[in-house]
């Protein structure tokens, strides 16, 4: 059987809220090492990769590897019924066709359980190669969200270019053009405002803003987000989930024919 108890139950809610608009149905894979998900959006342009390590759970038991197909919309509906401070426990039998979510209030005066029907989902699993990225910029998650939102009012695509002067986000459309440059700032008073840039070589790539905007729904999960880019490769947008793992998004660039 599978059983996992997460004291910070709202973390699961944040994860599902971050991906449910991008991915409709997905398989959650459980093994003794943790709880993971890999899924592409409907257009197969982006890939979501979630990893929650077993040691990040208060209790984690997985007797044999299993894949649980869920409708993320329905899962979000169920998790919405959990209190913000509730402890969430997931349970599933090895051969069952449901998964149970139990919510316990911190004062232990309210316990509820919700059963979600599992689905059979055919999903293609992709191998994500280790990549030596040319540039990685780590910036406040809220700043990334703002850049994507602001540029979306100007154009549909963004050119992200990393040089020694900083990382520039440029967009153009009927309205005009916009450029936003973020520079390294590792001496900001507040840690949450710091920006760091690791540049091995200059790189510039073009992406659809719609997807980058969608990834920003993960903002509540982490103070910072890292964008890693390499020439002619998908960008990796990485939200670290403290002491547990990560939620990563990969987006294929737009490339000349």
């Amino acid at each position: 059987m599978f059983e996992a108890r997460l004291v910070q139950g709202n973390l699961l809610k944040k994860v599902v809220d971050a991906v449910k608009d991008l991915v409709t149905d997905a398989n959650f894979d459980c093994s003794s090492s943790g709880f993971t998900l890999q899924a592409m959006d409907n257009s197969h342009v982006s890939l979501v990769s979630l990893s929650l390590r077993s040691d990040g759970f208060e209790h984690f038991r997985c007797d044999r590897n299993m894949s649980m197909g869920m409708s993320l919309g329905n899962l979000a509906k169920i998790l919405k019924c959990a209190g913000n401070d509730d402890i969430v426990t997931m349970k599933a039998a090895d051969d069952g066709d449901t998964v149970t979510f139990m919510f316990e209030s911190p004062k232990e005066d309210r316990v509820s359980d919700f059963e979600l029907k599992l689905m059979d989902i055919d999903s293609e699993h992709l191998g994500i190669p280790d990549t030596d990225y040319a540039a990685t910029v780590t910036l406040p998650a809220a700043e990334y969200q703002r850049i994507c939102r602001d540029l979306s009012s100007i154009g549909d695509t963004v050119v992200i270019s990393a040089t020694k002067d900083g990382v520039k986000f440029s967009s153009s459309g009927d309205v005009g053009t916009a450029n936003i440059t973020v520079r390294q700032n590792t001496t900001a008073d507040k840690k949450e405002e710091q920006v760091s840039i690791d540049l091995k070589e200059p790189v510039a790539l073009t992406f659809a803003l719609r997807y980058l905007n969608s990834f920003a729904k993960a903002t509540p999960l982490a103070s910072h987000v890292s964008l890693s880019m390499a020439r002619d490769l998908p960008v990796m947008v990485d939200y670290q989930i403290s002491d547990m793992g990560h939620l990563r998004f990969y987006l294929a660039p737009k490339i000349e024919d």
């Binding site: 592409m40 257009s43 197969h44 342009v45 982006s46 890939l47 293609e124 699993h125 992709l126 191998g127 994500i128 190669p129 695509t157 073009t206 659809a208 490769l233 998908p234 990969y250 987006l251 294929a252 660039p253 737009k254 490339i255 000349e256 024919d257």
Partner: peptide
């Protein structure tokens, strides 16, 4: 215009 590639054209099936 640049063409949107799919993610599976970069990452092969595992």
């Amino acid at each position: 215009d640049d063409k949107q590639r799919t993610i599976s054209s970069f990452f092969a099936s595992a």
